[in-house]
Design a protein around this nucleic acid. Structure first.
Lengths: 127, 127
DNA sequence: GCCAATATTAAGTTGACACTTACGTAAGCT
DNA sequence: AGCTTACGTAAGTGTCAACTTAATATTGGC
């Protein structure tokens, strides 16, 4: 999902994905729509999209036909919908935020040494 | 919308956005959750998120409080839902693919002047 | 086998960007 | 005023990724 999001951050790839959204197209056809970029560039973009599972490649003779993988797109949407609101640590964070703030205003923090209540780190590992 | 998508491509920023999703937090509190990155780095991320309209900044004394801008998030979702399926030029593009291919074999177009017959390129300008 | 067509891979360049440390700035204390 | 806290900005660095041109697979037809 991380890969998909990163792949979509690039406008050119969104344009490509759009082209093959409702049509299967060979690489050449896709590259021809872009007059400001070389064919290898498109090929590389297609590779990224394929790795992110956003397009599906089908070989036919010497040609490679691409079409959007809509399933991944809906998975992505589900991910975006859930990601922020998925609870549990959500609640923990909120609770400790208040406590952290309180710790600060209640009294002039005597020292920084009171590290006993170390705050839970944000999840670096992306869930 | 482009900026929002690009901002979300970075995992750290997603983590930050998650932190302030249901709570307003001062910059320091946010930075404290990340032990593997410096405070200025977080500040820069917050700046990006703010530019992308994904968070809202509120000043209170010397502190700056951040919270997620959920409106932008739902706009983004709507954008993702519509972008690929929004028809019209979808069909035009497909139709003109063959034409573009044909035109290439003819004489090199002398000037860009023929605006009327100019093919609608894949939207580089994002819609 | 050889050639042409289709497309990716290799190698290198460039610009963006996620970081770092150092410094600047603004608001509240005492 | 001077100090501290809270935070952003400047400047520099290393890495990554989007592109280029040149070279390299595959496939199909002769």
């Amino acid at each position: 999902m991380d890969a998909a999001l990163k792949a979509l951050a690039e406008p050119r790839r969104r344009a490509i994905l759009r082209l093959v959204w409702s049509q299967e197209l060979p690489a050449t056809d896709i590259a021809e729509r872009f007059d400001d970029v070389s064919r290898p560039a498109i090929s590389q973009h297609l590779s990224v999209l394929k790795d992110a599972n956003l397009v599906i490649e089908r070989r036919e003779g010497t040609r490679r036909l691409y079409r959007a993988n809509r399933d991944t797109m809906s998975e992505l949407r589900a991910f975006l919908d859930d990601y922020w609101t998925s609870g549990l640590e959500r609640l923990r964070d909120v609770a400790e935020a208040a406590q952290a703030r309180k710790r600060q205003t209640t009294h002039t923090t005597p020292t920084r040494a009171t590290r006993a209540t170390r705050p839970t780190r944000a999840t670096k590992g992306e869930r």
